[in-house]
Design a protein around this nucleic acid. Structure first.
Lengths: 350, 350
DNA sequence: CTGAAAGCGCTTACAG
DNA sequence: CTGAAAGCGCTTACAG
């Protein structure tokens, strides 16, 4: 592969001059510029990004460590991250943690070894020593979706509390009183918060959240299936299951179907995170939708601000409830939302 | 960040010795090794991968350019690729082309500039000059899922011909005679092949595939919706729509639902590529399943074989039909597959 | 077993 | 406007 030396030789100038025209430095004569450009063209020369990075100490690359690529929520997040990064002149390298702290740590280490300019992470746990150390050492970093309390890093996420309140009001209005949740790992903020928000919302209606109705999942489908089976085996099974993410909702559907039961007749289902397939499932699933694309873009902007020394602040965006049919038929009489709500609620038209 | 010089100073040895212990070179005294390791630990030293790559001319990194991250098929492929690569000591950088040749070219260029050791690509088109040039210049490369005819690069893919034959036999057995297809882009091999296989299978049953029953899609959901609307507007709409990938099937479901029609009562639906949600859609969707994980792993093995000078050959794996209910109820009388088939056919139990 | 030195492909003060 | 030179952080013959 042609190097800058080859170009210099071909153009009859020094490598310094070649470098200057390549980097748009103003002080190069038109003649020299033309000869260099000609040589670049003739040789099909492309600068070696590795050498450039070593010299300039910047890679123009962002690292993104997501919890699970197989989760459509994160996949959409990753897409918007890459898009915004590209618009700002950065590449992104994605590491998939598969919800495993050890894999997360592997990717954080690899990314740091490659000297990425900044790190975007949705932590699966409280953070490995390596990650915490990087944050402390000042590596530009921002948390997205999930975060680690006590670490001084901006957080870009959505707040689902109001939407969870709307969901519980919706369920209560439908006559449901025994509500259960498939929780995410307690080691994650979203794992804890969604349970807290759910419990708080139940409390507002005078409803309890007994321990038996809190199933411990790990944000992946199998755990949703397993927890749902447990719920169904209870002497008094819940009337509604709220899955804290879309994959656990998938697992719940698997479990319900495997028993020959029907949603919502035998048990109602709702999920955190909305995905396109929820419109076409049997029945369509009521879900809480996050502004995923906006989250990804905001996270990149915050990170690039950090990298380029412009601060970079936390951002919190609201989530919203999308009512479909998996919790029972809403009263047909009411064209309006059947419960008072301070936050935007959309009744799906599909 | 500590460099190798700092470690050498801390350990009281030369950088050459530090490098040797870091790389497991045998000729280092036990004492020197211990001091170096101690210094590494004390300083929290991590080798700079950028510098190492520049010096050794290898990055231990694979590039993967996929057609669309939002497509679960590619997402699963990417996951298995990363997994196998990691097992072999490589990282992978994913580029998402979003089915756009210009974006694909952007990622190929970026990846090549970063001097990845090898490139895995599922081309969205006939290949940009840059990609073709890289292949000709001997950059280790393998095509996965889709490929470019005439380019001397191994191809790892699955052959859906037999499964498409099984599908058509299934549809024919159910009494369907007017079968339509939502095709992928003609610029892609899978786009062309699935239509060819479908036409050929129809021919074997004496059925035509009129032009009006070939809708041009682009493997993304919106095109599936649009094409399906066109089919439904036909004076004589088809009885079955076969979507050449899962996203176009999603779009087809959108279109059918928007008209207040039902699958399979009003129109039957089948898809290429099986995804977990197809079990829970209304109705469950009959699909052709690829051995996606195995494809990803085989592709990585082939690529690493190329990189490490061990050849690296093409691999073709069979796809298989998974019958569900979206094409009509199969005759309940037959516990066996209702059609003769040389390839493995699984009747889904879900 | 060990170190001094060259060199990977760039960029960038510095001097002219 | 231009070039010679230093240097980014490593690895690896070469000599001892």
């Amino acid at each position: 592969m042609a190097s800058i030396k080859d170009v210099a030789a071909e153009a009859g100038v020094s490598v310094a001059t070649v470098s200057r025209v390549l980097n748009g430095h103003p002080s190069v004569s038109a003649a020299a510029r033309a000869r260099v450009l000609g040589a670049v063209e003739a040789l099909g020369y492309r600068p070696n990004a590795v050498a450039r990075s070593l010299r300039t100490d910047q890679t123009r690359t962002l690292g993104l460590v997501i919890s699970d690529v197989l989760n459509p929520y994160f996949t959409e997040l990753a897409r918007s991250v890459e898009e915004e990064a590209r618009a700002l002149g950065y590449s992104v390298i994605i590491g998939n943690a598969d919800e495993r702290p050890d894999l997360q740590d592997h990717h954080v280490t690899t990314l740091l070894d490659r000297r990425i300019d900044g790190l975007l992470v949705s932590p699966t746990d409280g953070g490995s020593p390596r990650m915490l150390e990087a944050a402390r050492a000042g590596t530009p970093m921002v948390f997205v979706d999930r975060w680690i309390p006590g670490v001084d890093v901006p957080v870009v996420r959505s707040d689902g509390r109001a939407a969870v309140r709307d969901l519980v009001a919706h369920l209560h209005g439908l006559g449901h009183r025994r509500l259960a949740i498939i929780a995410g790992p307690a080691a994650t903020t979203t794992g804890r918060e969604r349970v807290d928000a759910f419990r708080e919302a139940l409390g507002a209606h005078g409803l309890p959240l007994p321990d038996a109705y809190i199933g411990q999942g790990d944000f992946q489908a199998d755990s949703g299936r397993r927890v749902t089976e447990g719920f169904l085996d209870l002497p008094e099974p819940p009337e509604v299951v709220f899955a804290a993410d879309n994959l656990m909702a998938l697992g719940a559907l698997d479990a319900v179907r495997a028993r020959g039961l029907r949603v919502p007749r035998d048990i109602a289902l709702a999920a955190f995170d909305d995905i396109r397939w929820f419109v076409h499932t049997d029945p369509p699933v009521t879900a809480i939708a996050q502004p995923t694309g906006e989250l990804g873009r905001a996270a990149v902007r915050a990170l690039v601000d950090r990298i380029e020394g412009r601060g970079g602040a936390s951002v919190t965006l609201p989530a919203r409830l999308v009512v479909r049919r998996s919790c029972g038929e809403p009263p047909a009489s009411s064209p309006q939302s059947p419960f008072p709500s301070p936050s935007p609620v959309r009744r799906s038209t599909t």
